[in-house]
Structures are given as structure tokens and as C-alpha cells.
């Protein structure tokens, strides 16, 4: 069966959906849009989907991915995308739909890093922005203990790259983080920023702006495009 990869965004008010709620929402929208979904066999038939790494309740994602198997090739991809968008709730948008080439290793294995953006305002941090950024960068190791099971993660080791910029009185911190091997909970990242001197930050300040495969020093998105 042909497999398609969908790139979508979950933002604005839809950022408050949990991963599970989002999956159900997308499933029902695809059903309403009459996609020829392939279902598993047996009593409990489910469409054959696989999703990229989940995003926490409150965090937005601008370029998120899911794979779906279809019973047949669809010729008019743009038509289907439009049909799907008509069935999606506010805050969820389907951007691209692409036939997955044979030999693809699947989203789970493919994606090995994610880019996050943390938005700060002067309410969160009163002093010098560049100082904050330097403080964050100079932390050599920062351990985060996950509350529910006490597992400890080294957050700094999971940061591949970081940067910052100002825009319209707001300050943005940008991080490229490991996904899969060496991955840490994003809460740990927020903790690190708080430690550097900001007020407590909620997950709703976080936007995942992209998911990639890092190969050498090239970033490739799950649809095969190379990022600058």
C-alpha cells in the first residue's frame, strides 16, 4: 500500500491539545475528508498511521509529521490537502502531502533532531538579554530530574546548537536538540533557562519549528528537503 507523509502545524489554540487528542482529531478529519485510509485487520480495525515525536500539551509545532497508508495512490494531492484543511480545527493546518519513496526508514528512525524556539518577554527576564544567552551557553552540564520517575537527563549534552535574536521587544532563544538517542524532555530545557535567571516558564512558550535528520552538517527534513 502506498504511504504518504503529511506535514502539518499545531499552533494557536490547538497547542493545548495533547498528542493523543491531536491524533484522534487528525484521524477523524482524514475520515471526514474521505481519504482512502488503510486499516489494520481484526476486530479492532485502526487506520495505519505513524506519528513523529509527540509534542507536549501547550507546546506548538510548525512542521510536524505523520505517515499514513492509503489503499490507493491519490492523483490529485492538492485536492486532498484542501479537502483535509476544510475538515481541520482552527490551529491545525496541513501543509504538504508527499508520497513516501520505497526504502524509507520511517519517521521514528529518520528524525534525529528538533529545533525549538522559546519566546521570552521583559516580564520573564529583567536584565540584559545577551547576558542571559551567554549564561545559558556557558552552563557545561545541566541535569534535569524528571518528576514522575526521578530519571536524570543531561540537558546540555542534548543541545546541538543554540542561538538567539530580538524582535519587536521580544527575545527568542533557539535550540537544535537531539531526538531519539540522547533526547531529553523539553521541560529540562525550560528548567535550564529558568536556572539562568528567568521567571518560571510554561510549556506554552515553546514552539517546535522543525524536525530533521542531521547528516554530517546538513539538516534534512522528513520530506527530503535540505534546510539552510
Amino acid at each position: 500500500m502506498p504511504k504518504y507523509r503529511l506535514e502539518y502545524a499545531k499552533q494557536d489554540i490547538a497547542r493545548f491539545l495533547s498528542h493523543r487528542e491531536l491524533m484522534t482529531t487528525l484521524q477523524r478529519a482524514l475520515r471526514r475528508a474521505s481519504f482512502p485510509l488503510t486499516y489494520s485487520k481484526g476486530y479492532n480495525q485502526r487506520p495505519k498511521f505513524s506519528f513523529g515525536p509527540p509534542l507536549g500539551v501547550g507546546a506548538a509545532g510548525l512542521r510536524e509529521y505523520m505517515d499514513l497508508e492509503l489503499d490507493e495512490d491519490i492523483q490529485t494531492i492538492e485536492d486532498y490537502l484542501e479537502r483535509l484543511n476544510r475538515q481541520l480545527l482552527s490551529g491545525i493546518r496541513a501543509h504538504r502531502l508527499v508520497l513516501v519513496p520505497p526504502g524509507d526508514i520511517g519517521l521514528g528512525k529518520l528524525i534525529n533532531c528538533a529545533r525549538y524556539l522559546v519566546e521570552l518577554s521583559s516580564d520573564d527576564y529583567a536584565a540584559d538579554w545577551d547576558q542571559l544567552f551567554n549564561d545559558i551557553k556557558s552552563v557545561e552540564s545541566w541535569y534535569y530530574e524528571r518528576p514522575h520517575d526521578g530519571k536524570v537527563f543531561d540537558v546540555s549534552a542534548a543541545i546541538i546548537e543554540s542561538g538567539c535574536y530580538h524582535e519587536g521587544g521580544r527575545f527568542y532563544l533557539e535550540f537544535l536538540m537531539k531526538v531519539g538517542r540522547g533526547e531529553v524532555p523539553v521541560r529540562g530545557l525550560l528548567d535550564l533557562i529558568i536556572k539562568a535567571g528567568t521567571k518560571p516558564l510554561l510549556l506554552s512558550r515553546l514552539t517546535r519549528t522543525g524536525l530533521f535528520r542531521l547528516e554530517g552538517n546538513r539538516l534534512i527534513d522528513p520530506l527530503g528537503q535540505i534546510e539552510n
Binding site: I13, A14, F16, L17, S18, E21, T25, R28, A29, R32, V57, G58, Q87, L89, S90, G91
Partner: peptide, 11 residues
């Protein structure tokens, strides 16, 4: 918890 309860944007 479960903020989706309060959004009001159901289909």
C-alpha cells in the same frame, strides 16, 4: 490539566 476541555473549538 486537560486544557482541551476548555477550548470550545470542537468540530
Amino acid at each position: 490539566r486537560k486544557p482541551a476541555r476548555y477550548l470550545g473549538t470542537e468540530w
